[in-house]
Simulated assay, not measured.
Amino acid sequence: MSERMKFLQDLVPGCNKKVTGKAVMLDEIIHYVQSLQRQF
């Protein structure tokens, strides 16, 4: 996994280390960012 992906994984709560596959991890990150957008 690239350094950038690891960095994103560390930034996003709930994006646990046992997620397999970049697509699943990116999906979790997208949902997190969308939830942040809805708060503002």
Rank of each mutant, 00 (worst) to 15 (best):
L8V: 08
K6M: 14
A23T: 15
F7M: 03
D27A: 05
M5A: 04
M5C: 02
C15M: 08
L11T: 05
A23W: 15
R4S: 13
K18V: 07
Y32N: 01
Y32R: 01
T20E: 04
F40K: 13
C15L: 11
Q34D: 09
I30W: 10
D27R: 12
P13M: 05
D27Y: 08
K6D: 10
M5D: 01
G21F: 14
Q34M: 14
Q37K: 15
M1Y: 12
A23P: 12
E28S: 04
V12F: 04
M25Y: 04
V33F: 11
P13Y: 10
Q34C: 13
E3R: 05
P13V: 05
Q9V: 02
V19I: 11
Y32H: 04
F7K: 06
S2N: 06
Q39R: 10
Q39C: 07
A23R: 15
V12C: 03
R38G: 00
D10T: 06
E3T: 14
H31M: 06
E3I: 13
E3H: 12
E28K: 06
V19A: 02
K6N: 09
V19S: 02
V19H: 05
I30G: 02
S2F: 13
K18S: 14
V19D: 00
S2H: 13
K6P: 09
G21K: 15
L11A: 02
I29H: 00
L26T: 04
R4A: 11
T20S: 07
T20G: 05
K6Q: 06
L36N: 08
D10M: 05
T20M: 11
M25A: 01
F7V: 03
F40P: 03
M1P: 03
P13S: 13
P13R: 08
G14H: 08
G21S: 09
L8G: 01
E28T: 08
K17M: 09
F40Q: 08
L26W: 07
F40I: 06
F40E: 00
G14E: 07
E28I: 07
Q9M: 11
E28Y: 12
S2A: 10
Q37R: 15
V12D: 00
D10P: 08
V12M: 03
Q9T: 03
C15P: 00
K17D: 09
M5L: 11
V19P: 00
L8E: 00
K6G: 03
